[in-house]
Design a protein around this nucleic acid. Structure first.
Lengths: 136, 136
DNA sequence: GTAGCTGCAAACTCTTTGCAACTCT
DNA sequence: AGAGTTGCAAAGAGTTTGCAGCTAC
């Protein structure tokens, strides 16, 4: 039983065939798939699956915090398994998403919020860039 | 002639009654209005205006960089006149948007991108928080 | 057995667009 | 005069939902 399946069971979700497939797709994805992506990949494993189920399942997983929903400036959502906290840099030329972490940044955002009189609950930081051509 | 109107003229846009009204709404807004908000406020000044025109005008202004489009995690867009660069903290309890600037942060994000091998073109940073109760 | 889950299709929200009429410049 | 702009209604994209049947527990 996969880690994700286990967490779903703990949350009291029934482990249906469709869910197992969706969890497998999410667990093995090395990118940040859109709903459509998850749907396509799930269909390869179980062609009867419907996109409504994918939407419903992803929403559920998001509520359970097993998954993180992103809305990069594309007009639709992308998902990833909720692993370690990190941020994203989107390559404007290829659409590729690079993950990064930065301790200084983590501290800074908490400080900024506190200075404004707020307790930081959530945040969003995305960088959009183009690959540097010359390294030298 | 308002500053925004002037810039529109420079860009070669025709100054129609509808546009004048929309620019006025944007110029006098002290918040971050949604398309619907702009439409409602514009209708008070010219009841014949259509929401399609509001959408079209805001898109144009966005392309000209006279306005900045934001998509806080709400499922629709909000706009503000493109003034000084700043970021936003959204009050999760009231929806109020607080603006802030931070030099350290500006430098840090450029550095992060460069370290990843990227030239930073754009970015998005939003904080979501709740007001601190006790100040002491 | 039954609460929860599913597929299907219809509905919804936000946004864009084709078109014919109109209006700045 | 003519290119650009508008209102309207229809169309689009992404997402949600009502319902009847199905399934894990």
């Amino acid at each position: 039983m996969s880690d994700l399946e286990e967490k779903c069971a703990e949350a009291g979700l029934k482990m249906t065939g469709q869910r197992r497939v969706i969890l497998k797709v999410l667990g093995t994805a090395s990118d940040h798939p859109s709903v459509e992506d998850v749907y396509e990949r799930a269909k390869d494993l179980d062609s009867s699956i419907s996109i409504a189920t994918v939407y419903r399942t992803l929403s559920l997983l998001d509520e359970l915090d097993l998954v993180v929903r992103h809305e990069f400036q594309e007009g639709y959502s992308r998902y990833e398994v909720n692993d370690e906290h990190h941020h994203h840099l989107v390559d404007l030329e290829t659409g590729k998403v690079v993950e990064f972490q930065n301790q200084e940044l983590e501290a800074l955002k908490v400080k900024i919020a506190r200075d404004l009189g707020y307790d930081l609950i959530d945040h969003r930081l995305e960088l959009y860039g183009k690959k540097l051509k010359k390294k030298k």
